[in-house]
Write a protein that binds this DNA or RNA. Structure first.
Lengths: 243, 243
DNA sequence: AAATCATTGTGTAAATTGTACATGATGAAT
DNA sequence: ATTCATCATGTACAATTTACACAATGATTT
């Protein structure tokens, strides 16, 4: 019952799939391990005196600089052979302590949706680079992180189908085509712009502003912002919002 | 990396919400702790050499005698103060070892759907009774198990809304009213029998048999069984099936 | 200045899906 | 033979979803 403040939970880690949206595509934040060519999801350990949700918030804060992030726990990965620890030892033994790392670990997965432009990617102690990857070209990752990423995307799509999402993926003011492209990027399919607009406006979760976005090479699109109150209502009622 | 076969994962437990269906209502299997009036969900520890899914299967097997059960991991509960451990100590210290139990524990939640009639409820070492409770009258439970139960039911309802469910809750042959009552019990609302039948038959997941259920005091209802292949197809395609 | 280009913004009709609703048939019990 | 509770079933209307095309705009090029 009495733990030191700086003791972590044994054999239990937390991995974060951080999604961003930029240039019409979904991005995910990955870390490159020191003196290697290997990438992984951001992750970390859980303090004994820390709620797991708080651990996820902390890890996100450390990697992105952001607070108040959309965050969902989506699955706990607990196979005994989540990855080949011999292989991992070969890849990383020069940088990490095998005893602490290569015993069996269970990992709790969280995914986050963040405003791409607001993020300052920041590597941790084991890594030398932290950057956005286009979802389409994510390389082979360390541990079972490709599987975790896949499941996160699946959970996100599912969530999208019964809840409004996007408040945290878009800047404060955004255009309807931007929002639509975000939905297309998550769902992985085209959406009809007329039907999309009709549905979104009818739901009331966004408000049209008296501004247009200037500097585009084309007709200036109107700007919108989320209606916080309505957004929350729809979130809580649930089921109202299916794309 | 090298663990004894009978060493468990530290500070990590697994709790199971086992749903059954009988007499038109949803039931949940609970355990009564020895020499007390307190009830809890069935749970247990995870062996170091055991996948967490296998641990859930094992725990279910031990409590119900059933194999091949519908099982879903739905959430991991990891607040530092999941319950008041002082209070718990007062309630149970005469039966369990405080050191092993009252430190902080994270619990992985699974829910299961089982055929009520096929279950032989079986208490564990700490408990003296294992029985079905009507969901409506579940008492205050030990730990944070009321919260876990609530979240399990919520997850089940969500799952029901985009997937066929029920294969494991009903006996092999069942009538349409039985199936409908199962849906009503899970969803907590009435369904129109004509529309229900139309939808279910149209989806193709059940097949009408050339039999009726005899011995009812009324018109004999037809029997149906699940079409395994179609059921799996719909499960995998997803999204086809919304009640 | 005119033409070009890529993109934005918008409405209607058809098809599909979901909802509401009531009655005759049956088998057991009396 | 009657009663009773439940089972089985179809249609019309409402709501939702889908398909679809063109004029307007602002920057860029000629």
């Amino acid at each position: 019952m009495d733990f030191d403040n700086n003791e972590v939970f044994p054999q239990l880690s937390l991995d974060c799939v951080i999604f961003g949206f930029h240039d019409g595509t979904l991005k995910v934040l990955l870390l490159k391990w020191k003196a290697s060519e290997y990438w992984s999801l951001p992750g970390g350990w859980i303090w004994q005196r820390e709620d797991i949700d708080d651990a996820a918030i902390r890890i996100l804060q450390e990697r992105t600089g952001l607070d108040h992030i959309f965050l969902r726990q989506f699955y706990t990965f607990g196979k005994t052979k989540r990855y080949d620890s011999q292989e991992l030892a070969n890849m990383l033994s020069y940088i990490i302590d095998p005893k602490a790392w290569f015993e069996r670990t269970i990992s709790i997965g969280y995914y986050a949706l963040v405003d791409y432009a607001a993020v300052f990617p920041n590597p941790d102690d084991f890594t030398e680079e932290c950057k956005w990857w286009d979802l389409e070209v994510v390389p082979e990752l360390l541990f079972d992180h490709n599987e975790i990423l896949k499941k996160a995307l699946h959970s996100l799509r599912l969530e999208l189908s019964y809840q409004p999402v996007g408040y945290n993926l878009l800047p404060e003011k955004f255009t309807m085509p931007e929002m639509m492209k975000m939905y297309e990027a998550i769902l992985g399919r085209k959406i009809d712009p007329r039907n999309f607009q009709k549905k979104i406006l009818h739901s009331g979760i966004v408000t049209k502003l008296d501004e247009v976005k200037k500097g585009t090479a084309h007709k200036s699109p109107y700007l919108y912002k989320f209606d916080q109150q309505k957004y929350q209502e729809v979130l809580e009622d649930g089921g109202l919002f299916i794309m």
